[in-house]
């Protein structure tokens, strides 16, 4: 199953490390909170995704399997 990066918006405090370590997957909005840019994670971006998960001090970033059809 393909995977995608997700943010728990309640846990997120807008620290911004995720956008720093995963620039191909995360950008920040006008208030400094992360927006996931491209949904599915290919092999090239898997390293960035894992870095974003590990970097988040609020443990707000996670990788999720994408169910078929969404």
């Amino acid at each position: 199953m393909p995977e995608r990066l997700r943010i728990d918006p309640v846990a997120c405090d807008g620290v911004g490390l995720c956008a720093h370590v995963a620039p191909d997957l995360v950008r920040v909005d006008s208030w400094g909170f992360p927006i996931i840019v491209s949904a599915p994670i290919d092999r090239r971006r898997a390293r960035q995704a894992n870095a974003a998960v590990t970097a988040c001090p609020r443990r707000a970033v996670f990788v999720e399997s994408v169910p078929d059809g969404s």
């Binding site: 918006p9 405090d13 208030w31 909170f33």
Partner: peptide, 12 residues
């Protein structure tokens, strides 16, 4: 007031 985009974005 839990999610940043809602808290700051809706105010703006």
């Amino acid at each position: 007031r839990q999610c940043g985009p809602c808290l700051f974005g809706l105010a703006d």
